[in-house]
């Protein structure tokens, strides 16, 4: 057990206290704000462009609207990344387990000598 304690001491000393949870929360909030603000600003810019007669003003506002839509898409991606990360990790774990279990079943079935013997014996009888 002293070896285990020594390992605990070593690992506790090397443990870098992560602030990722706080960072994830901030990024999730930033993503949500960008997603909403992008759509709102794009809509406002587009509405403003309708009242303009000068092509240069219209182009500027349309460029702004398109940029804001881009920001909104990016914000949505960031929000999803940091809000669903934990769920996706678990989902990935489940997929890995099911894949491994499927592989184990296949290997188990291939490794059973009786089943292949029975198949070889049964086949000529069925063909008669």
């Amino acid at each position: 057990m002293s070896e285990r304690i020594a390992r605990l001491e070593r690992e506790a000393a090397n443990l870098k206290v992560s602030t990722s949870a706080k960072r994830d929360g901030i990024l999730q909030a930033v993503g949500a704000v960008a997603m909403v603000a992008g759509v709102v600003i794009a809509f406002v810019a587009y509405q403003l462009s309708l009242d303009k007669s000068d092509d240069r003003d219209i182009q500027s506002l349309v460029i702004l609207a398109v940029s804001m839509l881009g920001l909104s898409v990016t914000g949505a991606a960031v929000f999803l990344r940091y809000s669903l990360a934990r769920f996706l990790r678990f989902w990935l774990l489940r997929q890995l387990y099911e894949g491994q279990a499927h592989l184990d079943r296949l290997v188990g079935a291939l490794g059973q000598p009786n089943s292949s013997d029975e198949h070889e014996v049964a086949e000529p009888e069925a063909s008669r």
């Binding site: 605990l8 206290v17 949870a21």
Partner: peptide, 19 residues
Amino acid sequence: HVAGHDVTGASSHDLARIG
């Protein structure tokens, strides 16, 4: 503290990993 080392703010999975 864990084994005399300050781990304040460490996540639950970090603490679980070290024991």
